[in-house]
Simulated assay, not measured.
Amino acid sequence: MSRKKTIAGAFSAAAATYETAARAQVRAADSLVERLGPTATPLRVLELGCGTGLLTRRLAATLPAGSQILATDLSPVMVQAAGAGLPSVTFAVMDAEAPHVTGPFDLIASSLAAQWFADLPATLARLAGLLAPGGRLLLTTLGAGTFAQWKDAHRALGVESGVPDYPDAPTLAAMLPGARVESLPLTLSYKDARTFLLSLQALGAQTPKPGHRPLSPGQVRRIIKAMGSPCAITWDILLLDYRI
Score class of each variant (00 low, 15 high):
Thr39Arg: 15
Gly145Gln: 08
Thr234Ser: 09
Gly83Asp: 07
Pro104Gly: 08
Thr141Ala: 01
Glu160Met: 10
Pro164Ile: 03
Ala84Glu: 15
Arg136Val: 05
Asp241Lys: 03
Ser31Phe: 00
Val89Phe: 03
Cys231His: 08
Ser189Ile: 10
Gly211Lys: 11
Ala232Pro: 00
Pro76Cys: 04
Gly135Lys: 12
Gln80Cys: 03
Leu184Val: 05
Ala84Pro: 00
Leu86Gln: 15
Ala22Ile: 01
Asp106Val: 08
Pro185Glu: 01
Thr123Ser: 15
Thr207His: 13
Gly37Leu: 09
Leu130Glu: 06
Ser216Thr: 15
His100Phe: 00
Trp235Thr: 01
Arg27His: 14
Leu188His: 02
Glu19Ala: 13
Gly129Glu: 07
Trp235Val: 00
Leu186Gly: 01
Ala60Asn: 11
Tyr18Asp: 04
Gly162Leu: 07
His154Gly: 15
Leu215Thr: 10
Ser31Cys: 11
Ala125Thr: 14
Arg222Gln: 14
Thr20Ala: 14
Glu97Tyr: 07
Leu112Ser: 13
Thr39Lys: 14
Thr90Asn: 11
Tyr190Phe: 15
Gln25His: 11
Ile223Leu: 15
Thr140Glu: 00
Tyr190Pro: 12
Leu239Val: 10
Ala148Val: 10
Leu137Met: 12
Gly135Ile: 04
Ala28Lys: 02
Leu48Ile: 15
Lys225Leu: 11
Asp95Val: 08
Gly9Ala: 12
Leu186Phe: 02
Ser67Val: 10
Ser229Ala: 15
Ala118His: 12
Leu130Gln: 06
Ala98Met: 03
Ala144Asn: 00
Val89Thr: 08
Arg58Leu: 12
Ala226Gly: 04
Gln115Val: 00
Pro133Ser: 13
Phe196Cys: 00
Gly37Tyr: 06
Ala179Pro: 12
Thr195Phe: 02
Ser199Met: 02
Ile7Ser: 06
Gln80Leu: 11
Gly49Met: 02
Pro87Val: 06
Lys4Met: 09
Gln201Pro: 00
Ala82Trp: 08
Leu239Trp: 07
Ile7Asn: 07
Leu120Trp: 02
Trp235Phe: 15
Lys209Thr: 01
Lys191Ser: 13
Cys50Glu: 02
Leu55Lys: 08
Ala226Phe: 01
Arg23Phe: 09
Ala202Val: 01
Leu137Tyr: 07
Ala205Pro: 07
Arg44Val: 10
Val181Ser: 09
Pro210Trp: 08
Arg44Pro: 03
Thr140Asn: 06
Leu124Gly: 05
Val181Asp: 07
Ile233Gly: 01
Ala40Gln: 14
Pro121Asn: 05
Arg23Gly: 00
Ser67Pro: 05
Gly143Trp: 02
Gln25Ile: 04
Phe105Val: 02
Val45Gln: 11
Leu32Lys: 05
Ala122Asp: 12
Ala82Arg: 06
Ile223Asp: 05
Ala232Glu: 14
